[in-house]
């Protein structure tokens, strides 16, 4: 099964809608609570980063009997130093983003902790792609 959700950069009032829709799909499919929580956290963080830093992007969701795969890709500034971006506390969030409660520098580490596998590909000036996977059976 495959779903696609678009995300608009800078649209903070709509931010989280894609992750919320994904969560509802998983609920309807009867996926285990623990798995839903992890997918929700990871997809929400990925969506918030597109909203905060990129021009536009999308979340692609694939579910098969064994695992959930999500790709969050965007057209945007890219991440110059991925290792640094993965460090807890590192953030380039603007004051406006911080005022909304974001910019702790914990989003990417949260995605890593919530998922079974994660990889980031990014090209400066072009965009970023974050892929992650959560197993349905342990």
């Amino acid at each position: 099964m495959h779903w696609e959700f678009s995300v608009t950069g800078g649209n903070f009032s709509g931010a989280g809608e894609a992750a919320s829709k994904i969560k509802n799909i998983l609920k309807k499919l009867g996926i285990a609570y623990e798995v839903i929580r992890r997918v929700s956290i990871a997809s929400y963080e990925a969506e918030m980063n597109i909203t905060a830093y990129a021009d536009e992007g999308k979340l692609l969701v694939d579910i098969d009997p064994l695992e959930i795969n999500i790709t969050a890709s965007d057209r945007g500034p890219g991440i110059p130093d991925i290792d640094k971006a993965m460090q807890e506390g590192f953030s380039t969030a603007t004051p406006a983003i911080r005022e909304m409660g974001f910019g702790a520098g914990m989003g990417l580490p949260n995605i890593q902790r919530a998922t079974d596998w994660m990889v980031i590909n990014s090209t400066v000036g072009k965009g970023t792609e974050i892929k992650f996977k959560i197993y349905l059976k342990t």
Partner: peptide, 18 residues
């Protein structure tokens, strides 16, 4: 807490439900 990612980090450590 006031930081959203901090909230998610704490909740990621919780048990079966919230």
């Amino acid at each position: 807490c006031d930081m959203m990612s901090e909230l998610l980090a704490s909740m990621n450590q919780t048990g079966q439900n919230s």
